[in-house]
Amino acid sequence: MIEIKNLHKSFGEEKILKGIDFVFETGKTNLIIGQSGSGKSVLLKCMLGLFTPEQGTIEYDGDAYSSFNEEQKRDLRTKVGMLFQGGALFDSMTVEENVMFPLRMFTKTKKKDLKDRVHEVLERVNLNDTGQKYPAEISGGMQKRVAIARAIVNRPKYLFCDEPNSGLDPHTATVIDNLIHDLTVEYDITTVVITHDMNSLLEIGENIAFLKDGVLAWKGDKTQIFKTEDETVTDFVYSSDLFKKVRVAQQRGI
């Protein structure tokens, strides 16, 4: 569980996060949604320790990040898996080497055991025969799955995903969403997903934080978000024509 209390972050005079409180629950896919510039990425970077907040705390399973010494911070980072928007796979390494990378860096496991674990994880994300390929030789969806495999290979306690569906077709996006959800349940981890994708809300929105102008404007789950009458949320959720039509149909009882 990750608990955020009264989190503030500014860049110069500009206040980005203005006192956010939220609990990201373990075993659930926690979604952060909001328009561009609402503070989602800054919140994520604060949680990852890449930005230091001016005020407020971030607690990982009850322990405040700000109270950690350098060794504890490093230790925490070994328990974090991160899926970047573009995958952030290392171009110079094969798929297998990419997935093996966190294990090589932080464990003293024998190479054979490392390979076994890598194959196990690649099989879990349905990428059995791509181990020897380079990232440039596989599709965007496959790259995302490799990035997920790399993020979970170390059996993390916390998984962060920054717009995992960006640039993917709807079918592949659903595959990625379901994979993230299934892994969250299977590994019993705390997963935090930043997304703009309304399909992701429908698919995996078990605990949703809606940010607007640096404040938590709404929280709930996927069933609640499509029923809420809160205009700040509906303006965002029903901004696409498709969802507008769905809403009209819902209101007409179709």
Binding site: L48, L50, K73, R74, L76, R77, T78, V80, M82, F84, Q85, G86, A88, L89, F90, D91, F101, P102, M105, F106, F160
Partner: peptide, 12 residues
Amino acid sequence: TEQIDALEVMGI
């Protein structure tokens, strides 16, 4: 391509 961020997040 955020590969440096990936290294930092891993604690490297």
